[in-house]
Design a protein around this nucleic acid. Structure first.
Lengths: 208, 208
DNA sequence: CACGATAATGGCACCGGGTGCCGAATGGAA
DNA sequence: TTCCATTCGGCACCCGGTGCCATTATCGTG
């Protein structure tokens, strides 16, 4: 539901002190490699730490949990999507704007596509990650709900914006699941279909 | 998303052997009471086991995890909802049938309403339970998707039924969240609104 | 009643994720 | 060099969850 970035890349004013031994991006690379070969559950935090040459305790200073490694810098991507929606044209119907934003933020160049596919495969198939992802999805939904609320003249916590946030999330996840099952149809096309169905209320399919 | 039952209540043919020390229902009661007073995270499995007078090891023979206690016998409720949908009239548009089923299976008599509210409050606010619930929701979605697939002449794993399952789940959860925030509006009314919006594609709200 | 089959119990050791604490290592700045 | 900020990483600990296995309770049968 958004492209996680590898590097934090915020060149904070470093005043003094010991230099970090590694980086979030480096840990993410190593961890995903281990997950790919050995499996997520079969890879212990100690294994990742050992591969990076750091202590287990230090790992948890880079990522709050083993699960979070898979998500990389998801928050930055959310900020960009929020910005995109902020600057969308008001003439565009809001469900079209949401559809456009979701598609735009899930379009990858071929170079990074394979790794993204692996990442999403983990998130959507490993039970521990499926469960954990709920907490990340909440932030994603909030971005959608905020936008919908603004367009509808309501507050982000109001009922309808929340329903829209949840429904949009569902459409996005279902698209990803389908894409993982069968890579033949590009993700963008699946997202487009799902969000158009959503905006149409799933009508026009039933018949005798 | 469905009324969990307290008792397994399947009077299995008991041939011989030691009698169970307690029951799922009893553990559920005790656990929810502890969660209410002390909080979910602050209640250890040992506390529940001690309250029930059983060993910690035995607890895990009644429930596979601490999280699962909150869900009670969710599977039975799913079976009932599946059955309900199976016997729904074919003339009824399928989105209306889904709406009706969800409302029916989330209507409680006042006696059990308070405890159900507590249960759902835990599920939707405690992070550990929010995350875990994803796995339960999957079964719920499957019931919806199966029904939608049958009505649309597709297979349960096909794209559109899955999207509908996810969207319906979102509508239901959003309704519950709203209900927990403000019990003034009855849950049934919120579900009705959410599912009607869903079936209408959220149109008719934007304007100058 | 005694015996054996059956089933539940619960203690024990163990694993893995995650945290609080604290001293040690590192590197820039005064 | 000295001081300070920052990171590191070991250690002990908590908690959820599991495999193993001896123990205990119950029922049916001889």
């Amino acid at each position: 539901m958004g492209r996680p970035l590898a590097e934090t890349s915020s060149p904070d004013v470093r005043r003094s002190g010991r230099k970090p031994s590694t980086s979030r991006g480096e840990l993410e690379r190593l961890a995903l490699e281990l997950f790919a070969t050995r499996g997520f559950d079969e890879t212990a935090v100690d294994d990742i730490a050992a591969a990076a040459g750091i202590g287990r305790r230090t790992f948890f200073r880079y990522y709050p949990s083993k699960n979070d490694v898979v998500w990389g810098d998801f928050d930055r991507e959310l900020d960009r999507m929020r910005e995109w929606l902020n600057t969308s044209h008001d003439e565009l119907p809001f469900m079209d704007a949401i559809r456009g934003a979701v598609i735009a933020f899930n379009t990858y160049d071929p170079a990074t596509l394979a790794s993204h596919r692996h990442r999403m495969s983990l998130i959507l198939t490993v039970p521990a990650l499926q469960a954990h992802s709920t907490l990340r999805y909440a932030e994603w939904r909030a971005v959608i709900a905020e936008f919908a609320a603004r367009r509808l003249g309501q507050r982000p916590g109001d009922f309808l914006p929340c329903v829209i946030g949840y429904a949009a999330l569902g459409a996005a996840i279902a698209s990803y699941e389908q894409w993982l099952l069968d890579a033949h149809t590009p993700l963008g096309a699946l997202l487009d279909t799902a969000f158009r169905e959503l905006a149409a209320g799933f009508c026009g399919h039933e018949g005798p």
